[in-house]
Design a protein around this nucleic acid. Structure first.
Length: 460
RNA sequence: UCCGGUGUGGCGCAAUGGUAGCGCAAUCGACUGUUAAUCGAUGUGUUAGAGGUUCGAGUCCUCUCACCGGAGCCA
């Protein structure tokens, strides 16, 4: 007989079924039977199994069916006699695949997320992590759906790269050299002997390579791992995270912002529709305003304002900021939070930032003071998207690279895109884990990725 | 990396410089179509590590490590 997943079992017709999963909790009745709650991760809910002590091998498996053990139950799906569940399985036979001794760390009690991080190999068996991972999966699926429906081409950009000055932060070096005894020339390591014949790193962004393909296939998107060697110790940063980076030919900044807004709204509505049970759980246990917040975001326009207007808004407020508010200075987290949480109380897109505080590849506005950059800020989370229209003018781009002390020779191919058939184009990057964080309401980004990599932590 | 905080049974926490306790979980028993079951009993400690002050340190001092919160960097 084929095994039925619990998710399907809860809607199945009554009759004989085969259920397999892990015991969450067990309650013994002296009426001669036990209640076993089984979970197989297919959904948040458990199925209750009634194990009558008269079933054939009961005495031999009784001690093994403890919290955490894995069992297979063949039985009858029937209407429940008790309250709390509609259906339950009356066991006919039970096999124990793997018992779970008393030192099983996940006992039937509340555990802190900090503790669960130390047992990352077992935490997927908790309600919260099961729900997080199902939502994460839905988001990944919806990302592909969104772009595929629009005719975007999914592109895999390289993970090993030679670009060491993309300006997106410190990079992890990739090498096969003997680090204790590298061959040197003139006191410097001879990278011509390294695996790739030159110094290589893990990517901090697939954007520049993405632009290459948008200048051929029009609309592309990447969705892959990204690495930053920053010594960041916050609830919003990982050294290894997943990023979604669409790049669109013939999009200006307005088109770019439209796409970003539509994208976020699509993801939120898909999750609410397809992960209703898990979202109810988050709304009950993690953040009681979550569903209301998500619905409001879906139903309302994002606020869009220029950097200059943002500065004006901040200046006229009576809020006491720690950092100064002045045109030309970066917006600090406290400023961004103030705008999205206090002033507008919804997602905010700030655009047209000062040229001096943004990257070389962003398109210069007329007047040369600002660039067509945009950040999408979510209440209680902060920056989830950073993007821009790209500079497509060869001469302007070259000048900007020189201004920012970049070596144009290293970017010869990037400049070539402007030399041969250049086109206006735009793109953005969305932090996938931050999206999972926002949707679920989980406070720490380390609790929305299966195996978090942070400074001093690469276990599992 | 900077600022602040924390580190004590399996887990969550308490203990004025003076005998290390409580709750949960676990184990055993009682009771029950139970459901975060209930009731009773039982066991559980190199107080993160190293050094120092003191008659005496979980508590005070120094250093190291880890974790948490905030900041910076960013997604």
């Amino acid at each position: 007989m084929k095994r039925t997943k619990i998710k399907d079992l809860l809607n199945a017709v009554e009759g004989e079924v085969l259920v397999k999963g892990w015991v969450r909790t067990r309650r013994d009745s002296k009426g001669g039977f036990s209640f076993l709650e089984i979970n197989d991760g297919s959904c948040l809910r458990n199925i209750q199994v009634i194990a009558d002590h008269s079933i054939p091998n009961y005495s031999s498996i009784e001690k093994k069916m403890t919290t955490g053990s894995c069992i297979s139950v063949y039985g009858k799906l029937v209407a429940s006699q008790g309250k709390g569940q509609n259906k339950e399985v009356q066991a006919i036979t039970i096999d124990v695949y793997g018992p779970s001794p008393v030192d099983y760390p996940l006992q039937k009690k509340r555990h802190s997320f900090e503790f669960l991080r130390e047992i990352a190999h077992l935490r997927p068996r908790t309600n919260t992590f099961g729900a997080v991972m199902r939502v994460r999966n839905q988001l990944a699926y919806s990302i592909h759906q969104f772009f595929q429906k629009k005719g975007f081409v999914y592109l895999n950009t390289p993970i090993v790269t030679t670009s060491d000055c993309e300006g997106a932060g410190d990079m992890f070096q990739v090498t096969t050299l003997d680090i204790l005894n590298p061959k040197c020339v003139d006191g410097k390591i001879d990278y011509s002997l390294d695996f790739f014949g030159e110094k290589t790193f893990l990517t901090v962004s697939g954007q520049l390579e993405g632009e290459i393909f948008s200048m051929a296939l029009s609309d592309i998107y990447t969705f892959g791992p990204t690495f930053r060697a920053e010594n960041s110790n916050t609830s919003r940063h990982l050294a290894e995270f997943w990023m979604v980076e669409p790049e669109m030919a013939f999009y200006d900044l307005d088109d770019n912002m439209d796409l970003a807004e539509e994208f976020i709204k699509f993801l939120l509505s898909e999750v609410m529709e397809n992960c209703a049970e898990d979202m109810e759980f988050f709304n009950k246990r993690i953040d009681t305003t979550k569903l209301e917040t998500l619905k409001n975001i879906i139903d309302n326009q994002f606020e869009r304002l220029t950097y200059s207007d943002a500065i004006r808004q901040l200046k006229k407020s009576s809020e006491a900021f720690t950092y100064p508010v002045e045109w030309g200075l970066s917006l600090q987290a406290e400023h961004e939070r103030f705008l999205s949480e206090k002033v507008f109380k919804k997602p905010v897109i700030v655009f047209n930032y000062p040229e001096k505080i943004k990257s070389f590849y962003m398109k210069l506005n007329e007047g040369g003071e600002t660039v067509r950059a945009m950040d999408v800020l979510l209440p209680n989370l902060g920056e989830i998207i950073g993007g821009s229209q790209r500079e497509e003018n060869y001469e302007v781009l070259l000048e900007r690279m020189k201004d920012k002390d970049l070596n144009p020779e290293k970017y010869w191919w990037y400049l070539d895109l402007r030399k041969f058939g250049s086109a206006p184009h735009s793109g953005f990057g969305l932090g996938f884990e931050r999206m999972v964080q926002f949707v679920t309401g989980m406070d720490n980004i380390r609790d929305v990725i299966p195996f978090p990599r942070t400074p001093k932590h690469a276990k599992f």
